[in-house]
């Protein structure tokens, strides 16, 4: 009922390029310092591939987020990334029964070296999810 069968489902591999203009726009929007390095959270805005059978619901709350860089991410880099559902679990919280979804995004460069791993945890009341 909570979607354990989703664990292991993946998106297709998608190619992305870190464009100077987009990084610049991101920094300008946030009014943060931009020194030609890619802000640590920027790449998350580009990794939006669909995972078959899984849809982010409008009421889902973002609980946790982690970025790990195995090597620096640079402007001009071309990478391929893939999203995968790493875990689905249910907990009883002050909001009642809540379903958590852990989604991992991995990015590799053209020579196959891992550049980043992003882990995102979202949650939604179990009942609401079941009714959608």
């Amino acid at each position: 009922m909570i979607g354990k069968e989703l664990i292991g489902r993946q998106s297709e591999s998608v190619v992305l390029k870190i464009e100077h203009e987009e990084v610049c726009r991101f920094a300008e929007t946030l009014e943060i310092q931009f020194d030609d390095r890619v802000p640590a959270t920027f790449v998350e805005t580009l990794t939006r591939a669909d995972i078959p059978g899984f849809k982010m619901l409008p009421g889902m709350i973002h609980g946790e987020q982690k970025f790990t860089y195995h090597r620096p991410l640079l402007i001009g880099d071309i990478l391929s990334y893939k999203l995968c559902i790493k875990d689905v679990y249910e907990r009883t919280t002050k909001l009642g029964k809540v379903t958590f979804f852990v989604i991992e995004t991995t990015g590799i460069n053209l020579t196959g070296e891992q550049v980043f791993t992003i882990s995102s945890t979202f949650f939604a009341p179990t009942k609401e999810t079941a009714n959608e």
Binding site: L30, I32, Q33, D35, R37, P39, A40, T41, E64, Q65, K66, F67, T68, Y69, P72
Partner: peptide
């Protein structure tokens, strides 16, 4: 993350950020 990059300048890199 911007707080970190403003602090570290060109002297270092964020290799992990978890919240």
């Amino acid at each position: 993350a911007a707080m970190l990059t403003e602090w570290i300048g060109q002297e270092g890199n964020i290799v992990m950020l978890s919240v």
